[in-house]
């Protein structure tokens, strides 16, 4: 079975934020919810690298483990999704997540913290594929349409790769072999307890 992963090639990422707005535009994500974001490390210094980060769809997802209502599940493609019907907005997934992926509407308003929202790998949610309900709760379901996440598809420099784990790793490996450098598969060790070895 395929295993879907993201890999951000930081030697290509230029912090153009296309992934961020592509995501927002595709799923109509409201202000303040950032399913994907780009962080720049060592900003302004030689060695500066930007990395686009969203839910990494971990192999052993900590969010799922700590969820008090077990609202998470993994699809056959190993995409980590959750049910907003079951989610109670407790925020535990945010404490557990190494990548800051879970987002909460009105995070700081007393008592009214909403249902968690996060990157779905453009794979919708537990509702009927491509239904209106699914779109409204989770955004579009590109995987069901036979497409890949739009953030990766639209990445300006093709830094953000999405697809089957082996394929993505191969692409990255070949890049590194050709060019002779690579700052690593950011987040992979944490998410998958493995990395792309070259």
């Amino acid at each position: 079975m395929a295993r879907m992963k993201f890999l951000c090639d930081a030697d290509r990422c230029i912090e153009c934020n296309a992934c961020v707005t592509a995501c927002k535009n595709e799923h109509d994500v409201p202000w303040g919810i950032n399913r994907r974001r780009v962080v720049t490390i060592n900003d302004g210094k030689p060695g500066e690298r930007s990395v686009s980060m969203a839910c990494m769809h971990c192999t052993d997802p900590p969010c799922a483990a700590v969820c008090p209502v077990n609202c998470f599940y993994q699809t056959a493609d190993a995409v980590v999704l959750h049910s907003k019907e079951i989610c109670i907005g407790c925020g535990y997934c945010f404490y557990a997540c190494p990548f800051g992926a879970p987002q909460f509407p009105k995070l700081s308003n007393f008592g009214s913290r909403g249902k968690m929202d996060k990157c779905t790998y453009c794979a919708g949610g537990p509702d009927v594929d491509l239904s209106l309900k699914e779109y409204e709760r989770y955004g579009s379901n590109r995987l069901a349409e036979g497409k890949l996440p739009l953030c990766a598809e639209m990445c300006s420099t093709k830094a953000l790769l999405a697809g089957d784990s082996d394929m993505v790793a191969d692409i990255y490996k070949q890049r590194v072999m050709v060019r002779g450098y690579g700052s690593g598969a950011w987040g992979w060790r944490t998410a998958y307890r493995e990395t792309v070895t070259i």
Partner: peptide, 16 residues
């Protein structure tokens, strides 16, 4: 959002 990776959640998860 400035934090990119923080694996400490794993200890918390173990505790919790």
């Amino acid at each position: 959002a400035q934090v990119l990776i923080q694996p400490q959640g794993r200890y918390w998860r173990q505790f919790h």
